[in-house]
Design a protein around this nucleic acid. Sequence first.
RNA 1: GGUGGGUUGGCGGAGAGGUUACGCACCGGAUUGCAAAUCCGUGAAGACCGGUUCGAUUCCGGUACCCACCUCCA
Length: 469
Amino acid sequence: MAQIRLTNTRTRTKEDFVPIDAGNVRLYLCGPTVYDRAHLGNARPVLVFDLLVRLLRHVYGEDAVTYVRNFTDVDDKINAEAQRRKAAGRAGTLEELIAGRSDETIGWYHKDMDALGALRPDHEPRATAYIGQMIEMTRDLIAKGHAYEAEGHVLFDVRSFPDYGKLSGRSVDDMIAGARVEVAPYKRDPMDFVLWKPSDADLPGWDSPWGRGRPGWHIECSAMSAALLGPSFDIHGGGIDLQFPHHENEIAQSCCAHPDAGFARVWLHNEMLQVEGKKMSKSLGNFFTVRDLLDRGVPGEVIRFVMLSTHYRKPMDWTEAKAHEAEAVLRRWHGLVGGIEPAASPAPAVVGALSDDLNSAGAIAALHELAAKGDGASLLASANMLGLLLPGMGSWAEAGDAAADQIAALLEARLAARQARDFATADAIRDGFAAAGVEVKDTPQGPKWSLAAGFDAARLAELAKVYGS
RNA sequence: GGUGGGUUGGCGGAGAGGUUACGCACCGGAUUGCAAAUCCGUGAAGACCGGUUCGAUUCCGGUACCCACCUCCA
């Protein structure tokens, strides 16, 4: 059995991964707030965890992993969108419009992540389905002296938890010194954060011991992870931007509510995504969603490949050049494994690289070596472990029947021209293929073709009209 | 200001205290009507300064630059 090693943010070291229960390895990933389409950056933690889950299933068994990823559907932006719809005359109560907006967004999210080859988690809890548990946990924290009520809010008392700040390496005093937030007057300490806050009449709310209100963001994940995975589990992940305050606050809540449990053993944080060397932001105009890319014809498999070609703990730069390179590699590999059955198990070099703190770039290098050796069966089985070259995934790399017929006719015309030593016509067809994105290789067994990056069906059809009699 | 991360060949991007990463591109050869593809092969790196060491790109310290978080953006 391969020994998995993971960099634990909590200890800041790479550690041997030892599950609490090897028969049930439990993971929690902070999921999206479902107010809009997932942008490209949202895909990174999903793909990192997808890779981790595939590796854990390989090592511990298909049924030995429980993967939870939540949907945050209590949020101001969802409310705002629902209120906008109501103002625009949409039918239904505000609650129904909010649920409708969430349902719609979750549907998009599933479609987009499916397109990237990401496995659905075993549980995808929605925050609104766990309000009771959140209220209960909040009540418990008050009873244990870690939270207090003030002006309809319930606040967590950070001074009651000596380890507060340990995950992110900050002291409470440092944070106060650097804080740029205005401090609500009812807070005992500027760093105290909300567990429960009152809701206006025109916003969704739930009855609680502290009046009608709604949960704070951080308590959602603490309550849902406890409900589905128990008070202690193996791995908790998310983007590095969540390390503080979200994960810090989760630890404070969960460890104070369950003092002996220890909460998550290993914390995994992925670095951020950039676009052409810059942070992706609406103001820079380089903001785009996963759906934007898919609609532009960038296959999900290509997006996945590009994401996995950078180690998860390094900032990753999305560039057009990388997408093109990935597409070319995947086309070649699809051609190499066509009609081949996968080997019984992935190559040790690939499993080894992944086991070493999810070294996906190293694993891809090992795939290149398998491809260079022409070992299609091992390449296929190994690529599958990375969620690449999976059945049905390569349809983007295949030509339709019409294109295939046109190419066949053109190849025949070119052969005839060459035999007649009409090299001008033969070369014109060849140049036409290149312009249309069809790659032709002349082998001793005759010409072989495949589609290259930027295949253009319209140009091919035009070419066929001219030469393909 | 505080905290964390990064800086590897033309580009992307890993590992390892001493031996080829890998991919793309480039160059040479084979092949070809000429090409492409393919095959074979060559070259090319470790921000800067110091320290430890027989030996460091790899460990330690410092400097510079870049990035992120500290503001419910993954």
